[in-house]
Amino acid sequence: MAALLEVDALSIQFGGVKAVQDVSFSVPAGAIYAVIGPNGAGKTTLFNLITGLYTPTSGEIRLEGQAIQGKPPHELARLGMARTFQNLQICLNMTALENVMVGAHLRLDRNLIKAALRWPALSRRERELRQEAAECMAYAGLEDFLEARADAMPYGALKRLEIARALAAKPRLLFLDEPAAGLNPKETQEVAELVRKIATHGVTVVLIEHDMKMVMSLADRILVLDYGKKLAEGSAAEVRANPDVIAAYLGAHA
C-alpha cells in the first residue's frame, strides 16, 4: 500500500515542554492507523500539528508526497483532511444539523451577495445539503437528533456529531481524537463499528484511543507515543509483543 500521509522527524516545543519530539511514521492509504500512549504523551498535539492548528518547530509532513507542514487548517481541509476533537468543538449556537452542514462548507457556493439575495441555485443546493447532512447524521447513528439544538444534546451524541460533521466534508483522511472517551461499553462498541464502516468506505482513518480492546480489534497499524517520543510502531501483534511498550504502557494496565 502506498503511504497517504508521511510524517518525518516532527517536533514541537512549547516553552520548555517538548510535546512532540522527532516523531516519524507513515499511514498507508485505506488503513485504520491508531495512535496510543499515556496521558500527556503528545497524541493530540500530533493531530494539531498534522491538521495545521499548530506549526511544527521542525520536521516535515507530507500528504501524497506533497509537503504540507505550516499550512493553515482551512487549506488542509481542501486537501481532504477532516478531524474530530477530544474536547468537543461543537458549535453550541447552532442546531445539530447545521453543525453537520458546516462540515460541507468547502463543497458549497459561499458567495455573500448571492446568499443575501437568496439566489435560486443557492437555495436549491441548500435543500439538497440538508438532505445530505441528515444522511450523514443517520450514518453516524444520530437519526433521533435531526431537529435537535446542539446545546440540548447528550455527550455521547455530541461525540458522534463530531464524526458526522467530519464526514460531511467527504474527507480522504479522517483524524479521530478519542471518539469513544467517556462512553459506556455498548456505545464504545457502536463507535468501533462506525469507525470500521467508515474505513470500508475508503476513508483512511487515524485514531487516537485509550480503549485497548477497541484499538487492537480495529487498527491495521499502531504508533505508540510516550513523553512526546515514538516508543514503537507496527502491527497490533508487534506492538503488543514489544517489551518497551509493555514496560512503559501496557504494563501499567496489566
Partner: peptide, 27 residues
Amino acid sequence: NLIDSPFGRALRALHGSEVAAQVAGVH
C-alpha cells in the same frame, strides 16, 4: 437570507468554535 446560507453558517460556526470552523475549511 444571509444567516441561513453557507456564508452565514460559516460566520456562526466561527463564533461557536473557531478551530472547528477552521478544520471544516472556513478561512
